[in-house]
């Protein structure tokens, strides 16, 4: 297959710096609290209905408040970049269901497997990351070019 790079959209510098901040947040969470910064795991365990079996909700809640609040804080320094969302209502719902179900079944997402797992040199996370990127390539192709 022939790859053509979209040079106008390519932002290696900003993406590398942003990625390093994600890595810093991950490092802070494990060094200070001993926890894994996997977003689907944090959210999934937080909404677990069985409270008695899961007493460690405070740190998850705090981390997610920081995450959700980051847009608000960013605005004090620079205009917030646009999120261009082209998916229809139905697509958003199907996509959300798949992401929620799939990340719980596969025990992680782009952060838990892609950042935490790969930086821990976990084979399990490498298999998971290859699986979701491969599936992303295929479904993206089918959705944009074949159907």
């Amino acid at each position: 297959m022939h790859l053509t790079i979209h040079w106008q959209n390519f932002t290696p510098g900003a993406s590398l710096v942003g990625g390093m901040l994600i890595g810093l947040a991950t490092a802070l969470l494990v060094i200070f609290r001993g926890k894994i910064a996997g977003i689907s795991g944090i959210l999934g365990e937080l909404i677990e209905a069985d409270h008695s079996a899961n007493p460690h909700r405070l740190w998850r809640g705090l981390f997610l408040i920081g995450l959700v609040g980051s847009s608000f804080v960013y605005q004090f320094f620079a205009p917030l970049p646009q999120s261009n969302i082209s998916a229809s209502l139905g697509t958003l719902i199907v996509a959300g269901l798949l992401v929620g179900f799939g990340t719980r079944m596969g025990s992680g997402c782009t952060s838990g497997h892609g950042i935490c797992g790969l930086s821990r040199l976990s084979l399990r996370s490498l298999i998971a990351t290859i699986s979701f990127i491969f599936s992303g390539f295929v479904i993206c192709y089918l959705f944009l070019h074949a159907i």
């Binding site: 958003l92 199907v94 996509a95 719980r104 596969g106 952060s111 298999i127 295929v138 479904i139 993206c140």
Partner: peptide
Amino acid sequence: LVIGSLLFGAGWALAGFCP
């Protein structure tokens, strides 16, 4: 692990959002 990740990747591609 594999099936869950494949399903996640599908949803990720459809909306462009991960968690």
